[in-house]
Nucleic acid binder design. Structure first.
Length: 625
RNA sequence: GCCCCCAUAGCUCAGCGGAUAGAGCGCCGGCCUCCGGAGCCGGGUGCGCAGGUUCGAGUCCUGCUGGGGGUACCA
């Protein structure tokens, strides 16, 4: 497998070593910023200049001369430019067949990480099971799903878990609405939408009717005590919503290995066990006085506990009414994830072809008991606002003595989805304040439903698609790519026009490029690559260079847990392919056998690489549209 | 108050210390339209401000300004 950056870097460092062993920094070769000057370039000479006390250009010349004596593979020419850049020009005669061969033989693991082996758990989605999923939840799911795909492409063993918070306050809220306010679904209203409406209604009534807040607390306690019909009703409600979420996420190509139920964590005594453990170890404290009287708390800093407890600076894991907070349960969950809790769930299938699920009832078990958990590394995809409680979980593990596990717990934080002023207006939000963006709020019913968005995308794409399946896939492509192309630190200023657009930097554009490649291939019979590679055009060289970099990009995106890195590579590849297509003679009219063979292979290699990109992004590649 | 994130073209965003800062949208003009145009080509006076580190700063450091978020016995 040719990896030019690696090959050229190694040759460069070796050649540079001859100038003085200590002077060689670990500075690699990178794709040239100036294509006129070379294909790959290095600024190594600048770094060495200071140590060697010689002008960079002179050093560059010296290194280039040494490199020239025994040029690395696939290198045609080495030059020096500017004030001391060393440039490599690619020998496409040898590189092109190697790259095409590589692209056409990629396996499931695209870019093996030598350190891969032990299990990585990726937790994502974890939407409260009390309402329909909105576009913010969808962003979480798409990020998590693509991160999981990227890690697998790197050779990691990945287990995707979706945490079901069925004993939290939000489920209790909707339950209050159904049981005490008598809310029920309207004709034709889906269950998840009904719950969304009930949630809004209940939250609205809390302000005027404080006794409802009492009912919520009571409901929550009944849920957590796992007793009676309330706990059963909660589980039922959550189960129906989970089904709805799974369906919604499946439309966007998102799936899971395991659903982890919070109620099982409680029912199986994980929580109690973890809390006992932390009490015995002195990790959590129960102050007899002060603001935390009667609570079990984890002080933020274990070196100044007394002061903090007096000032109210600690994280409550168990409230004074005896009910655990989400963070308390999360600590127990994470001890289990790393296989150090000493307890395990039983497992069954959620649905015949669906994911597995935990269960507290060993008699229902269908799957091996040791199949899940026991991770060496954990990645939690949770929005940036929950950074503080994630730190608490990490700290709890560390103070219990699990330093390795604590260090291997990573919060993959991302920014939220907000509404652009035009989207907010479309949803009936008062925008007279003139803000740049408006927050989503499930509580207030201000959001864009994930299903509604996908429905709308399908409608807009219908006329161009050959059938409904294609329309659904195009719609999912548009929406999913839109949610993935932003860096994780960017707030997505959600805009209907942008999300549903089908031209330019969009998922639909990518699908068209892929379908176009398939179309070309269908018109021309397969041909062997010529033994002597003809001279490549400029746009063909660009394509070959991009294809060559693909495994490295996958590695970068996977190691950086950065879907947007792959998204922008994919767009560049699609654009370069369209450029090639536009500026090449029609393949089926080409007389020259060698040229036909080369070009068809190149199209095929591009098609294959685009397909892999789309799959990693979670879009189903379309052969025809 | 303290902590985190953000500020790049009219708008939405890429740029993980290296050469002349790039895309998409929108706008104007052109090409092409039987390899599926949802395409291609051309058109650009932009890195919030002030210091610093460096041979070299949009990128690193400090301060400031302006946004967003966190700092709950919510999650």
């Amino acid at each position: 497998m040719p990896d030019l950056q690696e090959i050229f870097s190694r040759a460069l460092l070796e050649a540079a070593g001859g100038l003085g062993s200590d002077a060689v920094p670990d500075l690699a070769v990178e794709p040239s910023a100036l294509s006129e000057v070379g294909d790959y370039s290095s600024a190594l000479a600048f770094r060495m200049a200071g140590v060697l006390k010689r002008p960079p250009r002179e050093i560059a010349r010296e290194i280039a001369r040494r490199l020239g004596e025994q040029p690395p593979a696939h290198c045609r020419e080495i030059t020096v430019s500017g004030a001391g850049y060393i440039n490599f020009r690619i020998d496409f005669g040898s590189l092109t067949p190697a790259v095409i061969g590589q692209a056409l033989s990629l396996g499931a693991v695209i870019s093996p990480d030598p350190t891969a082996g032990a299990k990585v758990i990726v937790e994502h989605t974890a939407t409260n099971p009390n309402k329909a999923a909105h576009v913010g939840h969808l962003r979480n799911a798409c990020i998590g799903d693509t991160v999981a795909r990227l890690l697998r492409a790197r050779g990691h063993q990945v287990e995707v878990q979706n945490y079901i918070d069925d004993t939290g306050v939000q489920v209790a809220d909707v339950l209050v609405g159904i049981r005490h306010l008598g809310l029920s679904a309207r004709d034709g209203e889906t269950f998840d939408r009904f719950c969304s409406r009930a949630y809004v209604e209940v939250c609205r009534r809390y302000e005027a009717e404080p006794e409802l807040v009492q009912l919520r607390a009571q409901t929550l306690r009944q849920i957590e005590d796992r007793e009676g019909e309330v706990a059963v009703a909660a589980k039922e409600l959550a189960s129906k919503i989970v089904d709805a979420h799974l369906q919604t996420m499946a439309r966007a190509g998102v799936g899971y290995d395991l659903l982890t139920w919070e109620s099982d964590i409680i029912e199986l005594g994980f929580l109690g066990h973890a809390l006992d453990w932390m009490q015995e170890a002195g990790v959590i404290r129960q102050p007899a006085e002060g603001p935390f009287r009667g609570c079990w708390v984890l002080p933020h800093d274990d070196t100044s506990e007394e002061q903090e407890l007096a000032q109210g600076e600690a994280k409550v894991l168990v409230k004074s009414d005896g009910v655990a907070t989400y963070t308390g349960k999360d600590v127990a969950y994470h001890l289990w994830k790393f296989g150090v809790l000493g307890l395990d769930f039983a497992y069954r299938l959620w649905s015949p072809q669906g994911p597995a699920t935990t269960t507290a009832d060993p008699e229902l078990a269908q799957l091996a008991p040791d199949r899940f958990g026991r991770a060496a590394r954990v990645v939690n995809v949770i929005d940036q606002r929950q950074a503080a409680p994630q730190v608490v979980v990490k700290e709890a593990l560390r103070r219990l003595g699990f330093e390795t596990q604590s260090a291997a717990l990573y919060h993959l934080a991302y920014e939220v989805v907000a509404l652009s002023p035009s989207a907010a207006t479309a949803l009936g939000v008062d925008t007279t304040e003139g803000k740049a963006r408006y927050a989503l709020s499930g509580r207030q019913g201000i959001d864009v439903g994930a299903d509604d968005l996908l429905d709308e995308a399908e409608r807009q794409v219908q006329s161009k698609a050959r059938d409904r399946t294609v329309a659904a896939r195009l719609a999912a492509s548009a929406v999913r790519y839109y949610l993935l192309r932003f860096g994780l630190n960017s707030i997505i200023n959600f805009d209907f026009g942008e999300a549903l657009r089908t031209s330019g930097d969009t998922g639909v554009y990518l699908q068209y490029a892929h379908a176009r490649a398939c179309g070309i291939l269908a018109k021309v019979d397969a041909l062997p690559m010529p033994a002597d590679v003809p001279q490549l055009s400029a746009s063909e060289e660009v394509l070959v260079k991009l294809l060559e970099r693909f495994p490295r990009v996958v590695a970068e995106a996977a190691d950086g847990l950065s879907p947007s890195t792959l998204a922008s590579y994919t767009f560049t590849l699609a654009t370069s392919f369209n450029d090639f297509y536009e500026h090449s003679d029609r393949l089926y009219q080409l007389q020259d056998e060698a040229l036909r063979g080369l070009r068809r292979s190149l199209v095929d290699a591009t098609r294959a690489t685009l397909a892999r990109c789309l799959e990693l992004l979670g879009l189903i590649p379309l052969g025809r549209i």
